Simulated assay, not measured.
Amino acid sequence: MKIGRNEKCWCNSGKKFKHCHYGRETEQPVSKGEAIGHTKKNSSRKLCYVSADLKHECSNKIINAHTISKSGSLKEIADESNHVLGLKISLPNIIKNKGKLIPEKIGINQASTFKGFCSTHDKALFACIEDREFVGDEEQCLALMYRSVAKELYAKEGMLNTSEFLKGADKGRSTLEQMFMQQFAADQQLGINAAIKELSELKSKLDKQLLGKCSGNLTHLIIKSSKPVPVAVSSIVSPISDFAGNLIQDLGDLSVDAQQLVFNAFSSDGKGYVVFSWAKESQKVLDFINSLLAIDKNKMFSALIRFFFGVAENTFTSPLWWGTLTNEQKGKIEKLIMSGVNPMEFEPKDLLVEDGIEFSGWEIASIETINF
């Protein structure tokens, strides 16, 4: 490949070749320390994801906001030392575990936190779920949804930063390796930018509802139990396949907006809840939910375990419950955790399909719907 020094660089950066990839293979490679430094800086970004209409109320203090209630939910499933099991997703930890993500002990003060709200708005927006018993009204379901969407936006924007870092991390590599890394990052950014656009549009709808500018057009499914759920999670996903292995939507087609499902599993006043929330017009998500509702209630907790660990990273587990699992059950969960780690692999169609490995420890008492 021959390119003139003053021609546009082949990587589509817009820069001249002499100011971009010319001689890149002879440059000093990015060190492990630089990569770790980027990871730490990226995870320490401070923002408040409140509506633009409320920005003037922001305090100067951005806090470690919990996406899962510390007092009501994490403390409920923590061990005597106030630790839960969760994933420590950082470059140093991935290096230490040789590329594997495994459940490790995390203190409840650190679990599920992100620097995504100021102290004023973290209190104002989520008091309805932090300070009173969960009854499953629309205000509480909206608050759960809002927090999950903000956390996912924060994560996706962080992924975009990391993708940009990757573009500059091809120093000291052969031209072929440089081309592969640049193409990989470019393809990744297409998907990330599409996800950010969709999440921003969903958040805009939630902002309007919070501000009373529009009536609710959201649907919620609430699964209840008389005892705490041993797994706590707060996340959002665009489901690809359902619990029967049927294809729900093709996320590879970026010309079509993906339909999103928000889900939370938590405890409140000694009771356990799983709440699914989505836009009422999202027919594909409804099809996914109906595949869950078709499962026998006695097997639904096992289906939820497959779902939580198979599609969400922001998942935390009771050490006591984990200690009751067999090696086969733990192996299944660890396999589910790794199912979405390799970006070069597609999600298996049977990810959520029953495979004979069952889980116990939470009995479902009732299932309710709002605006279904």
Rank of each mutant, 00 (worst) to 15 (best):
Thr26Trp: 10
Leu91Phe: 13
Met1Thr: 11
Gln28Asn: 14
Leu199Trp: 01
Asp269Ala: 13
Ala127Ser: 15
Phe126Ser: 02
Ile333Val: 14
Gln110His: 12
Cys58Lys: 14
Ile62Pro: 00
Thr39Glu: 15
Gln178Trp: 08
Ser215Gly: 12
Leu166Lys: 12
Ser148Pro: 00
Ser200Asp: 14
Leu254Arg: 09
Ala294Thr: 09
Val30Asn: 04
Leu101Pro: 03
Ile223Thr: 01
Gly331Asn: 13
Gly356His: 09
Ala365Thr: 12
His38Trp: 15
Thr326Ala: 09
Val285Leu: 10
Leu320Glu: 15
Val149Asp: 00
Ser71Glu: 14
Tyr49Pro: 04
Lys16Ser: 02
Phe276Arg: 01
Gly23Met: 09
Ile36Pro: 05
Val231Phe: 07
Ser234Asp: 05
Leu320Thr: 14
Ser44Met: 12
His220Thr: 07
Leu325Gln: 06
Ser318His: 04
Ala232Leu: 10
Gly270Asp: 09
Pro29Met: 04
Ser318Val: 01
Lys8Pro: 07
Asn290Pro: 04
Asn109Ala: 11
Cys141Tyr: 04
Cys214Phe: 06
Lys40Gly: 08
Gly252Ile: 09
Asp269Lys: 15
Gln188Gly: 13
Leu199Ser: 01
Ile295Trp: 03
Ser44Val: 05
Leu336Val: 04
Arg147Val: 03
Val30Tyr: 08
Glu157Gln: 15
Phe288Met: 08
His21Asn: 00
Lys2Glu: 13
Lys171Asn: 13
Ser291Ile: 05
